[in-house]
Amino acid sequence: MNLVKEEEARKIDRYIENAKKVNQHVINARVTAAFAGATALTVGLLIFIIVYILSRGFHMVTPAFLLETPRQMGRAGGIYPAIVGTILVTGIAVVIAAPVGVATAIYLTEYTRESWLPRIVRFGTENLAGIPSIIFGLFGFLFFVIYLDLGWSILSGALTLSAMILPTIVRTSEEAIKAVPNAYREISYALGSTRWQTVTGVILPTALPGIVTGVVLAIGRSIGETAAVIFTAGASLRLPESLLDPVRTLPVHFYILAREGISMDNAYGTAAVLIVLILIINIAAYSIMNRFVAKSR
């Protein structure tokens, strides 16, 4: 009698065990599906936007469109000055911000101990990174354009953008440098290297991929910036002759064409050029980095 009962109890136990196991499998499958779905949504959205803009604008992109100056406020002609302006403003901004940002990150991680200074700087940079770009535009307008009397110019725009992307570069570089295994530092110091030799010998080469990612993100942010640039670099359609000339960047050109209803076709053409430009810069940055990393391997 007892034996039968035990047998049954065991059967029930086994049934519950199995049910639990099945339940775990179901949960696992659902979570996998949910994550895959989120990924598909992200990638899908990205592809949709790119394809949509390229399909609306790509047929506008002809050699003439790329190499001519705009006529009739941009209704006709090309976007050559805007391409030049975008590359100059962004390029100068990055050339200023990247060394300063990386140097700040190195100083905070390698030259100071964890104390109030890095914490304050980190807090400051985080807040700075959260400030809307139009505030930077206002600051740039008041400080560079008016107070320093640089006027609406490539230089004003570049300086404003460099102030805007500096926090991003500092933060990403800092994280990349912190991720360098401490063992590398100890080995380098234990061999009698100075701090600077350790920074150039093991820390920067190891942290480089992370730093480049940060700089590429910063380039992307500044190349697509409208609000901060329109106040500081101006909206001139002429080809700039010096760094003190005003210029109109691609996103500003796009904004004005679309908002004033000048030419939607040319607006989409401009957007297509902008997207392709960003793509080219990203691919170039990563391939340069990969070559460098491969050499140090």
Partner: peptide
């Protein structure tokens, strides 16, 4: 730095620089 060069050290975990 000169002291450390004269006093070499091998660490617990084998680590190769990258």
């Amino acid at each position: 730095a000169d002291l450390r060069r004269r006093v070499g050290m091998v660490f617990a975990l084998p680590v190769a620089l990258p």
